[in-house]
Design a protein around this nucleic acid. Structure first.
Length: 672
RNA sequence: GCCAACGUAGCAUAGCUGGUAGUGCGUCGGAUUUGUAAUCCGACGGUCGGGGGUUCGAGUCCCUCCGUUGGCUCCA
């Protein structure tokens, strides 16, 4: 007999050899909803035999660990189904991922339409209730089992070196190399859905074989699957690319260029309001606004190191036309031209890929003393980067974007405080926008790497400054080794939007490198010359990206202060146009963005039409309103109040805009 | 950049195995003058992403380029 301690603390006696699964059933009943067990802190299959006294608890399918196991097992089921349908395919790897699972196969390309067939097969295999068996093999046996699959053999060979145990999991006739644990039976995998098919490289290496990757999601039951699918639908409705079109916020035109955003009037309002808001806080924090041009000489970027290092992701340099003609007359080839540029033999201009060199030059345009520091130079600077064509998407990955950029030139003893200031700015803006769920990642150097510039002491101090800043704010933060830039540690901001998706926005980076490269100096209080440290910060990344995130966060229903049009005035009939115009004029005088519809549609039709543009409020006026000099106000959710006096309306609206209330609230919620 | 799928009027879509384009919304015109999620009638609008090919004939098949989407890789 053995003693088994359950997770509620009770101790039961069982015969030796009982399985973990049997214990879980005994403890939680048959409908336990678990997919595996934890034995003495380790995840184990239900089939694991217990021969010594131990602690056992079940892993609930809905828990993080449970979902991981479920996903991993679903990947196996997917592979089994694919192998039945495409016997020539060779399975490679199939892990669980955050939102589901995938499996990579070496096989002829398939299309989305094939997914349904595979899914059907998976359902069929699931219904067969195949037991999932764990089998331990010797290394030789393992090699034999996968003799026809070079990918698995490669993994096995790597594994053997690591000395991992050699196990396979078998369900029906099919088996796969895996450490487990897995669900006890394919019956646990009845709620699966294949979502997409795409391509991946073997081991993520572009130079190696292309594989077919099939993605899917799985849930513990059909109900949960339905919920997840509807959440995905919701996310799709919020897609800023779709809303950007529907709400006429921005446009990308093939003839202008991929990834180059045209901000249309309504979107420009959102961007401008946001920029004004950020600028206001920058001024309060002692930043100085600067403007710099969109291009700079190549040599500038040679000095900064960016031109040679990031050459592949820059627009090609501009060469002066006389020089170009001369080189062309001499029969200079493109390759030669490129080499001469690299070597610095000819000069040209670069569309600026970042703002720092220009700001550095503003710093060094004057002699600086310690009294000048910190010097904070801010610019909404537009930069251009040659992103890979396949990466470009909506507002989040573009080739021209405007950073909410600033560079702080500081003394070493000021680093901590200035980093803190950067984070405070982010905090106030996130709070105003109702994005209070965010976290901070502190990127530290990899202690085993030698790629970093600057002395270890400076690094220690800078890293500590970043940690201190992060921890002083009471937000979640994590440290990540090896995530620092080569010139200094950094802090990244990651926000969670209202439907739980995370977005990486901007960063704060401490930089010892650039001041060195440009030979920046200041005169210290000791009379000696010192080198400043730079802090790069673009806490929201880019205006494009940030607006994109906001569009999705608000699902296009912007707070009143950000709404492209704040008020739409609708008349009951054309007879009321004059009153509508009067109100509009009044609102415009008060700096409110307003639109009028005094056309001959019915009021129902007008509401329907204008709803699509998501104004913060609709104002409806007819005979009654004209007589009493009031308005009827309609919120986005359909709630309404009538008889609101013009004065009250305008003053409370102004207040809401001024306070940047994150949810329009002039119309009280219906109380019934 | 790589792989797959896709690309029909401003938007959303129909068009099976090839026989020279439909529909809804929007727009415009007319009628209507309306009280909180679609009033009626009519008209305009497409060389079916660009170019090339196969064919008597291509939106539909093939090639190529451009773009979009989903991934991979990359991201100062």
């Amino acid at each position: 007999m053995i003693q088994v301690t359950l997770d509620d603390g009770t101790v039961n006696e069982y015969v030796s050899g009982i399985t973990a699964g049997e214990v879980v059933i005994d403890a939680n009943g048959k409908k336990h909803g678990c997919v595996a067990a934890i034995v003495n802190g380790e995840q184990k299959d239900f089939s694991t035999q217990l021969t010594e006294s131990c602690e056992v608890s079940g892993i609930d399918a809905f828990s993080d660990d449970g979902m991981h196991i479920l996903r991993h097992s679903a990947a196996h089921l997917l592979a089994q189904a694919v192998m039945e349908l495409y016997p020539d395919a060779k399975p490679t790897i199939g892990p669980a991922i955050d939102r589901g699972f995938y499996y990579d196969f070496a096989m002829e390309p398939i299309g989305e339409s094939d997914l349904k067939t595979i899914e059907k097969k998976m359902n069929e295999l699931s219904r067969k209730n195949l037991q999932v068996e764990r089998i331990e093999l010797t290394d030789e046996e393992l090699q034999e089992h996968f003799v026809n699959n070079p990918y698995k053999l490669e993994i096995i060979n790597d594994k053997l070196e690591d000395g991992d145990s050699s196990t396979i999991y078998k369900q029906g006739d099919w088996y796969d190399l895996c450490l487990g644990p897995h669900v006890p039976s394919t019956a646990k995998l009845m709620a699966v859905k294949l979502t997409s098919v795409s391509q991946a490289y073997w081991r993520g290496d572009q130079s190696r074989e292309q594989l077919v990757r099939i993605y899917g999601i799985v849930e513990p039951d059909k109900h949960a699957l339905k919920q997840t699918l509807s959440r995905m639908e919701e996310a799709k409705k919020r897609d800023h690319r779709k809303l950007g079109k529907d709400l006429q916020l921005f446009h990308v035109d093939e003839e202008v260029g991929q990834g180059l955003i045209l901000w249309t009037p309504r979107g420009a309002v959102v961007r401008q309001e946001l920029q004004d808001f950020i600028s206001y806080h920058l001024r309060r924090q002692g930043y100085h606004q600067v403007f710099t041009p969109n291009i700079g000489k190549l040599d500038l970027y040679r000095t900064s190191g960016h031109f040679p290092y990031y050459q592949d992701s820059q627009y090609p340099p501009l060469v002066e036309k006389d020089l170009m003609k001369k080189l062309s007359d001499e029969g200079c080839s493109c390759g030669e031209l490129s080499n001469m540029m690299k070597a610095g033999d000819i000069e040209g201009y670069l569309l600026k890929p970042m703002n720092c060199p220009h700001h550095v030059k503003i710093y060094s345009s004057q002699a600086r003393s310690y009294r000048d520091l910190p010097l904070r130079l801010a610019e909404f600077g537009t930069v251009y980067r040659w992103e890979q064509s396949g990466e470009i998407s909506g507002l989040t990955r573009v080739r021209g974007f405007t950073q909410d950029d600033a560079h702080l030139f500081v003394r070493e003893d000021q680093i901590a405080e200035e980093v803190l200031g950067c984070i405070e700015l982010v905090q106030v803006i996130f709070e105003t926008l109702g994005m209070e769920d965010y976290r901070v990642r502190v990127g530290l150097r990899d202690p085993d790497s030698s790629k970093y510039v600057g002395s270890p002491e400076k690094w220690d101090a800078a890293e500590q400054a970043c940690r201190d800043a992060a921890s002083s704010l009471g937000v979640n933060w994590t440290e990540e080794e090896g995530e620092a830039a080569f010139y200094g540690p950094k802090i990244d901001f990651v926000v969670k939007d209202v439907i739980g998706r995370e977005w990486q926005l901007g960063t704060v980076q401490v930089d010892y490198n650039l001041p060195e490269r440009f030979g920046l100096e200041y005169k210290g209080s000791d009379g000696n010359t010192h080198r400043p440290v730079m802090i790069h910060r673009a806490p929201f990344g880019s205006m494009e990206r940030f607006c994109g995130v906001l569009i999705e966060h608000f699902a296009g229903k912007f707070p009143t202060w950000l709404s492209p049009t704040q008020i739409h005035i609708l008349t009951i009939s054309e007879k009321h146009a004059q009153y509508a115009n009067e109100i509009a004029a009044l609102l415009k005088d008060n700096d409110v963005r307003v639109e009028i519809d005094a056309g001959d549609d019915t009021i129902g039709k007008k509401i329907r039409t204008h709803r699509k543009m998501q104004p913060a409020y609709m104002v409806i006026v007819g005979e009654g309103e004209i007589e009493s000099r009031t308005v009827s106000l309609r919120a986005r959710n359909g709630d309404q109040i009538s008889g609101l006096s013009l004065d009250d309306f305008i003053s409370s609206l102004k207040q809401e805009i001024q306070e940047k209330t994150s949810v329009p609230s002039l119309v009280p919620a219906k109380s019934d």
